[in-house]
């Protein structure tokens, strides 16, 4: 077969039926304000660590909701806890505590 330099990219389709949201539900129970997130992205826009890395609070929440826990945790690790996202959040979500809860609930072995 001739190599044209193209390939078929892997599907990014997420089957929600296969996703185990046990840990996310636990997180949500501890921080009910997570439910009010409307993914506006203000947090991402101001993020201090986001200037140098791919940290994004909005994405972290989205990824956890969709079961992409490994990727989310990789991002959480780089957070500096400065609290700017909390100050700008249009929904008044306590983002710092959610990030701390994630580091307590999720574990690199069980995801």
């Amino acid at each position: 077969m001739i190599d044209f330099g193209f390939s078929i990219s892997k599907s990014s389709h997420i089957k929600m039926d296969d996703v185990d949201l046990k840990l996310f539900n636990k997180l949500e129970a501890l921080n009910p304000d997570i439910k009010t997130c409307m993914a506006c992205g203000l947090c991402t826009a101001t993020c201090t660590a986001g200037k140098f890395t791919d940290v994004s609070f909005r994405q972290i929440i989205l990824m956890l909701q969709r079961g992409k826990e490994k990727e989310a945790v990789e991002k959480v690790k780089k957070c500096m806890m400065c609290g700017k996202c909390m100050l700008v959040c249009s929904r008044g979500i306590n983002t710092r505590n959610i990030l701390l809860s994630i580091t307590r609930i999720y574990n690199e072995q069980n995801i």
């Binding site: 200037k51 140098f52 890395t53 791919d54 945790v73 959480v76 690790k77 780089k78 957070c79 500096m80 701390l100 994630i102 580091t103 307590r104 609930i105 999720y106 574990n107 690199e108």
Partner: peptide, 21 residues
């Protein structure tokens, strides 16, 4: 905390004036 922070990226960061990742 079960997940430890990882600031390896700071080491390669010589200056703040770098552009986006």
């Amino acid at each position: 905390y079960k997940i430890k922070s990882d600031f390896e990226y700071l080491k390669s960061q010589q200056d703040y004036k770098t552009t986006r990742p």
